[in-house]
Each structure stands twice: as C-alpha cells, then as structure tokens.
Write a protein that binds this DNA or RNA. Structure first.
Length: 292
DNA sequence: AGACTAACCTGAAAGC
DNA sequence: TGCTTTCAGGTTAGTC
C-alpha cells in the first residue's frame, strides 16, 4: 500500500506528535512475522527512551532515540500509523474519509487485534498506534551503531534521484523497466502506483527491457517520478483501500491517477483503452498507444 | 549477478 | 444467501 508519498505524509504528521516525547509504556500483540525485534524486547527496551527525530528512508520510517537506538517502521501493504486523542483528528483507518463524531473517533481509535504496537508517553498525551491487518509491515529496534542491512540495501531516494541513476541500473538489465523501478536497491520509494504513473508520463511502456531504455527516456522517467511523488505528497498521498494519514484523514492523489487501476478506461492523453498486464507478479497499467 | 517463483497474511469485492 | 476465487499500495528467501 504505502509508497514514498504516503510514508512521507505520515512522517510529517507524526513528527510534531512524537519528537521530544518520552515513551512510558509499550503494548504489543504476540510474536509474529511483523516483529523483527521480539515484542517482549520492545516492551522492555523502549520505556524511558525519548524520541529525538523522525526520518524517512525510502519507504521506511526511522525514529531516532536519545539512547542512540533507532526504531525502524515499515508500513508494508496495509500498515496504518495514527495518534489518538488529537483534537480535531479524524480517523485514518480503512476507507476513513471525512469527519467523524467524537464518539466515532473513540471507536475508530480503539485498538483491535490488528493493532500490533501502541506507544504510551510519560506526558499523558495521545498514544501512538500502529495497526496492520496483513502484517506485511515491520518493526525493528536497532542498537546504537548497529548497521541496518535493510536500509543499507536501498538505492538513492526516488524524490531526488536523477536519470543517470536509472540509466546505470537499467543499462545492463533485461528485466522489464517496470520491475526495475520497483527494485528498492536501484531506487528507493517507488511502488506499484507511482511506477505506472511515472511510466505513463514518460511515455515508456512498462514491459520494455531495461537495457533498451534510452538515456533520454531515463531522464524523462526520473523527472516524471519526482513530479508524481511531489504532487502526491502535496495532496496527502493515495487513499485507495487502507491508507489513512495519522490524523485519520484520507489522501487525494487517487483522484489524479492517470492509469493505475483504470483498466478499460480511456487514456487521458489519446483516448485509447488502458490495458492491464501482469509484470513480475504485479499488475501494470498502461496506454498501448502512447507508451512505446 | 540477475531473473523468476513462492511465501508471508487478512479482508474486501467479484463471480457463481 | 453463501461459498469460492481474485485481488491488493511490499519485501524476502530460495532456485536456476
């Protein structure tokens, strides 16, 4: 679900909510695929730590703690992070949307069986909730100075990457360019929606082998990726099924999609019918006429 | 190295 | 109505 824009919107809303606060207590669900660090260790280690910064690396959120530790969070496909008790907050859980009454808010924020992590702070302010129905999300606590293979694997951040970064990665590869754009070690932050949208803007067909994408096209792709990601951040991200902002609001970028999820509809540029094709186990959406 | 598959989970929507 | 199938914004381990 969440790609770079959704993670960045989450980071921006969460930052003022958590930075400077000291964790008092931690609630978790049972050990599972979701916890890279055992939940018992989180409950034991986190209390007493103060959050000093909240950063984003690709699709990861990284909370820096005053102990020198780092708490890594990944939203996976259905992850949702939100605060409770924030005045004026709306809910962020599924299909969220508009305004909820205070009662509905309480309902919405009540932890359920999918709320795997809950942080309580020593100032008695709002708790932080991390829920994830499918558990593809991740939580990991890194000790001071401990290297993180997950973060070190990542390529340049997609928000600032240039055409040459794509060209370097694509030049020798036979895989479809769409698959390469999804490869986080090549470019960090692009996911299925924005890969399709950027390929459309750059007029490059997703099936094209990487080695056959020209320098000019790589420049167009990098430019399209930056543009699409920036615009999505500005509109609050894409809320298509699960994604909600930490204040419960929904993003609006889904209304600006040109091809993603629009199989059978008319291409906004040439009116040809948008096609869907499975590439690397993910659906790709493209215009068969204007994407060469 | 790189390309491809299966697997990790749950829930909503579509199909019959 | 109810059962079955399909699909989903992600990543990783294993295989050739």
């Amino acid at each position: 679900m969440p790609e770079l824009p959704e993670v960045e919107v989450t980071r921006r809303q969460l930052e003022p909510l958590v930075v400077g606060r000291r964790i008092a207590r931690v609630f978790t669900t049972r050990p599972s695929y979701f916890f890279l660090t055992p939940p018992a260790a989180l409950r034991r280690s986190l209390p007493g730590r103060r959050v000093e910064a909240l950063e984003r690396v690709g699709k990861y959120l990284v909370a820096r703690l005053d102990s020198g530790e780092r708490l890594l969070l990944h939203l996976g496909m259905t992850g949702q992070i939100f605060g409770a008790g924030i005045p004026g907050v709306r809910l962020l859980s599924s299909s969220a949307g508009a305004s909820l009454t205070p009662e509905e808010q309480q309902q919405a924020f009540r932890p359920d069986r999918h709320t795997h992590l809950r942080l309580r702070f020593d100032d008695r302010g709002p708790d932080l909730f991390f829920r994830d129905a499918r558990k593809f999300g991740k939580v990991q606590l890194m000790r001071p100075g401990e290297p993180s293979p997950r973060l070190e694997r990542l390529g340049p951040d997609a928000l600032t990457a240039r055409g040459k970064h794509i060209l370097e990665g694509a030049r020798t590869r036979r895989a479809p360019i769409k698959s390469l754009l999804l490869d986080q070690s090549l470019l960090a932050g692009v996911g299925n929606i924005y890969a399709d949208e950027a390929l459309f803007l750059a007029r490059v067909r997703p099936t094209r082998p990487g080695r056959r994408v020209s320098r000019d096209e790589c420049n167009r792709l990098a430019s399209a990726i930056r543009r699409v990601l920036r615009r999505s951040i500005a509109t609050g991200g894409s809320s298509i099924s699960d994604y909600v902002q930490p204040d419960g609001g929904a993003g609006a970028y889904q209304d600006e999609r040109r091809v993603y999820g629009r199989e059978g509809e008319a291409c906004p540029r040439c009116r040809a019918t948008i096609r869907r094709k499975v590439i690397g186990q993910r659906s790709a959406h493209y215009c068969p006429r204007c994407q060469k």
